[in-house]
Design a protein around this nucleic acid. Structure first.
Length: 836
DNA sequence: ATAGGGTTAG
């Protein structure tokens, strides 16, 4: 095998040696008289030299024997091979092998020597030679079988190892306590629980229960097969337990998600004074990482230092994994640089840590360093890179990553395919996502869920539902995540009832809704205008004993931005206070927003004042609150304060502050912000920003300036801005401009009856009743009268005409009838002109 | 005139 030679060449201990003259050794000086005694003594010396790691001396003695023509027996060759094995001296072993072949059949075909050679090659991971020699054996025995089965299991050829295990029994050799651990290891790797239990039975029958090696392997096997209770039973019944037995148990707990048990066992181990190795610490650190146990993980790192354990790729990686999981990336990086041995997993942990921490630049740097040090990316690296591309919506890098996957045959990797799909979906390339999905042949739950989530994000509920059924036809039962996506797809598409149906369907099928399910429903219902349903769901969630996350609470509070639900908002505020969640800036911002939108501006201010480290969003919420309450002075003051504390205002901030100016009629302030302040902060004014100022100018009687701004701004005017100008045209009786603007408006939104109303208002204000009627007839032709969304405005408009003196209005009876139907005649009569 | 062994990270 090529890799073998690479491995030997790297190791300076394995340099080829020359058969040197034996060095004078004091023990060699007095040779006993008879040849057989001398031979015995030589054997003894060679054996002890080999055991003491003095292979060179042993070989020297061997050469001396050869030159003195001693008859060298199988024992000497056996000892020498054993010595080579101990020092991993592959080349020396090959030389010994050559001498064996040269010394004739009686040695070369000796069962003991042949077995030793098989063991030697098997241990040196030279599978071809070992297996070839094994096949040509004069006689098999338990030792050669054990060597071969061990080799196969080490090479991860688990099926072959188990086949060998069966074959040796067929050939009449009873497996002993040395072979059994290898067979059990293979069972664990393949999760062949039936086979494993069979071996366990055999162990019991043969009385190997007492062997620590067998016991530890059983613990490991049961752990790997997810039968952690059986593992525990074996462990507890072991008459003797060593470090490895404990380690196997702890690792079993961690692998089965029982992190607390693993930690407890770690402490028990310390109390009992069992030596703890890097394996122990590695497992302990995994448990700490899984539990976010900050203190324990640090202790684990400290113990590694105290025990003087060098940071090999595995222990080092466990420490990095822990620091990365709890977000201490600087510590992770420190450990990374201090490691003496790194592999692709080590690198991946650092990359993944930075990606999950949102430090994309550092993640990319590490990837580049990886390439420059010739560490090849594997599927985990690519998954991290692709998910980073998704997070940053970096389609260019994402495509490069995808191409790398195609070039390097990662296409069949399900995890890579899933993250490629998510990447394309996040970058709004749904067709590419679908293409990647279709190119896969074997599909797992994660892959189906990736595309399902992509459809959900776009609100493609039809496609999502189709996929949802398709996966079931394909024999993949949906899990909570699948249901969450379908529910989200419906809610994004405004299909509230369908979403609710799915929610009850999953419960009747015993798929338990999780935090995401509840949160999706709460925010989706709110966004579809069903705030009170959202609040109801939030209460159900608390009753179900699910702890809300920050996102859940933010969604629930956003449902309470309606005065009718303020009482629930206050209840949630109480919940927040009881659970010490006020410290979250996100929650505080939502509270400010809720109180402001419910008209409780002073309560909003109270919450606002309590927050210590304020960030831009909470300022925005407060300024917006002031703006909507007509408290322009307060809004401007807070805006100035923002400058004082060095926080840069954003686009939303300017929307809020301009709308405050607009409501308060602060023309100069509004113009200054648009013309000076926004360029200062490099914020390009949006349509909405211009809208505020245009409306402000037109309302304050500067219709000309307003129209000028409308013409010079870099945006095509939207309906909103045109309507605000139309209102001014009405006041100023600017019929010509009104007509012109209305024409544009009706081109933009030909089916919006409100626009016709605005136009007819212009004519009505100028007393052009005949044109008003004309416009009304146009509306009637379009069947707009029955449109419930604008009936109020229409009625108002009709009334305006009526009140303005056109008493002979032909439809006055109809208007009265409509009002009577709505039960509001008197009320509207008095307030008619304010309806607009 | 004799042999060999199990556990670990994403």
């Amino acid at each position: 095998m090529a890799s073998l030679f690479v491995a030997t060449a790297r190791n300076p201990n394995l340099m080829p040696f020359k058969f040197a003259k034996p060095r004078k050794s004091p023990r060699c000086t007095a040779l006993p008289e008879t040849a057989s005694v001398v031979r015995k003594s030589y054997l003894h010396q060679i054996a002890s030299l080999c055991k003491n790691g003095q292979l060179g001396e042993a070989v020297g003695l061997f050469t001396a024997m050869e030159s003195e023509n001693f008859r060298i027996g199988p024992g000497i060759y056996g000892e020498l091979l054993q010595g080579c094995l101990l020092e991993r001296a592959f080349f020396t072993g090959q030389q010994v092998h050559a001498r064996i072949l040269k010394s004739g059949e009686s040695i070369a075909r000796n069962e003991f020597v042949e077995t030793k050679l098989v063991i030697f090659y098997a241990k040196c991971n030279a599978p071809e030679t070992a297996i070839q020699l094994f096949r040509r054996l004069e006689a098999q025995n338990v030792f050669s079988w054990a060597a071969i089965i061990g080799l196969l299991s080490r090479m991860d050829s688990n099926e072959e190892a188990l086949l060998g295990f069966c074959q040796m029994q067929k050939n009449g050799f009873l497996p002993d306590n040395f072979v059994i651990p290898n067979a059990l290891k293979a069972c664990g790797a393949l999760q062949l629980i039936g086979f494993g239990k069979g071996v366990h039975g055999y162990v019991h029958k043969m009385g190997f229960d007492g062997c620590v090696f067998v016991g530890s392997s059983l613990v490991d096997m049961y752990g790997k097969c997810n039968l952690v209770e059986d593992a525990r039973k074996v462990f507890e019944n072991m008459p003797e337990r060593n470090t490895i037995a404990w380690n196997s148990m702890i690792v079993g707990f961690v692998q089965n998600g029982l992190d607390e048990e693993a930690m407890q066992m770690f402490y028990d181990m310390r109390v009992e004074g069992v030596e703890q190795t890097r394996v122990t610490l590695s497992a302990f650190l995994s448990a700490s990482a899984n539990l976010d146990a900050l203190e324990e993980g640090r202790q684990g790192h400290a113990l590694a230092i105290v025990h003087g354990l060098e940071l090999d790729n595995i222990l080092g990686s466990s420490i990095i994994n822990y620091y990365a999981k709890v977000g201490l990336l600087e510590d992770a990086e420190r450990v990374f640089t201090s490691m003496f041995e790194k592999d692709v997993v080590t690198w991946n942990l650092l990359v993944c840590g930075y990606v999950q921490n949102g430090d994309f630049e550092k993640a990319l740097n590490v990837c580049q360093l990886m390439r420059s040090e010739n560490v090849r990316f594997d599927s985990v690296t690519l998954t991290s890179i692709l998910s980073m591309c998704a997070d940053t919506i970096n389609l260019k890098l994402g495509k490069e990553g995808h191409c790398y996957c195609i070039r390097n045959n990662f296409e069949s990797d399900l995890a890579v395919a899933s993250s490629t799909i998510s990447m394309y979906a996040k970058c709004k390339r749904i067709n590419s996502a679908i293409q990647v999905f279709k190119s896969t042949t074997k599909r797992d739950l994660v892959l189906w869920n990736s595309l399902l989530a992509a459809y959900a994000d776009l609100g493609l509920s039809g496609e999502a539902l189709k996929l949802f059924y398709q996966m079931q036809l394909d024999g993949v039962p949906p899990n909570v995540i699948s249901y969450n996506s379908v529910i989200l797809a419906f809610l994004r598409n405004g299909q509230v009832n369908e979403a609710k149906d799915m929610f009850s369907q999953m419960q009747s099928l015993n798929v338990l809704p999780n935090l995401v399910t509840w949160t999706t429903l709460i925010s989706g219902l709110t966004q579809n205008g069903l705030s009170s349903d959202a609040v109801l769901i939030f209460r159900q969630m608390l009753e179900a004993g699910i702890q809300p996350s920050i996102v859940t609470i933010v969604s629930a509070l956003s449902a309470c931005t309606d005065l009718a639900l303020l009482q629930y908002g206050r209840t949630i505020h109480g919940f927040i206070t009881r659970h010490d969640l006020c410290l979250s800036v996100l929650i505080a911002t939502s509270l400010v927003d809720m109180y402001a939108k419910c008209g409780c501006i002073y309560q909003a201010k109270n919450v606002f004042d309590m927050v210590v480290n304020k960030e831009l969003p909470i300022y925005n919420a407060m300024i917006s609150g002031y703006a909507s309450h007509g408290l322009a002075a307060e809004a401007l003051l807070l805006f100035k304060h923002l400058e004082g504390v060095g926080i840069e205002p954003g686009s939303i901030t300017f929307t809020c502050i301009l709308s405050a100016c607009n409501h308060a009629g602060l023309v100069n302030e509004g113009l200054e912000i648009l013309n000076d302040t926004m360029p200062k902060y490099c914020v390009k004014p949006s349509m909405e920003h211009y809208g505020c100022v245009v409306s402000l100018l037109s309302k304050s009687g500067n219709l000309d300036k307003a129209y000028e701004l409308l013409q010079t701004m870099p945006h095509e005017p939207d309906a909103h801005i045109l309507v605000s100008l139309l209102a001014s045209c009405k006041e100023k009786h600017e019929i010509e401009l009104g007509e012109y603007l209305s024409e544009q408006l009706l081109q933009l939104e030909p089916d919006n009856s409100g626009n016709y109303v605005a136009l007819s208002n212009v004519y009505a204000a100028a007393g052009k009743w005949n044109v008003v009627t004309e416009v009304r007839n146009q509306m009637k032709e379009k069947g707009m009268r029955k449109n419930p969304g604008c009936s109020w405005i229409q009625i108002g408009q009709e009334l305006s005409v009526f009140v303005s003196g056109d008493v002979s209005h032909p439809k006055s009876d109809e208007i009265y009838a409509t009002l009577a139907l709505l039960g509001m005649e008197m009320h509207f009569m008095g307030h008619a002109p304010t309806i607009y």
